[in-house]
């Protein structure tokens, strides 16, 4: 994988023996998402997208991924809805939609 998957089976330590030694823990270990931060959702219009990858490059969270068909996908688990991708897209291929209430 090019980005970590959430560890859904993670159980927080209960006993002392469950804790890591020192302050060392596996890198790229994610247990929760950032989706709830978002009020606006970027949506890519595949027709308009020229695949220039500028959105992929400039996303501070790295949540835009190239898929195997050469298209782009957004990981909505970790997108915070900042809107940089939409603003920087030269083709205006990414619109920001309200997440609603």
């Amino acid at each position: 994988m090019n980005f970590p998957e959430r560890n859904r089976s993670f159980k927080p330590p209960k006993e002392l023996k469950d804790y890591p030694v020192g302050t060392a823990f596996p890198a790229g270990h994610l247990v929760d998402t950032n989706a709830a931060w978002r009020s606006l959702r970027p949506v890519i219009d595949a027709i308009k997208c020229s695949n220039c990858l500028i959105c992929w490059l400039l996303c501070p969270d790295g949540v835009i991924h190239r898929n195997s068909e050469g298209g782009l996908e957004i990981d909505y688990d970790f997108c915070k809805g900042c809107g940089i991708c939409s603003k920087e897209c030269r083709q205006k291929a990414i619109r920001m939609e309200s997440e609603g209430e």
């Binding site: 302050t23 596996p26 890198a27």
Partner: peptide
């Protein structure tokens, strides 16, 4: 096996 050290708890 990459690790994160000195983390916040």
């Amino acid at each position: 096996s990459p690790m994160s050290l000195g983390f916040t708890a």
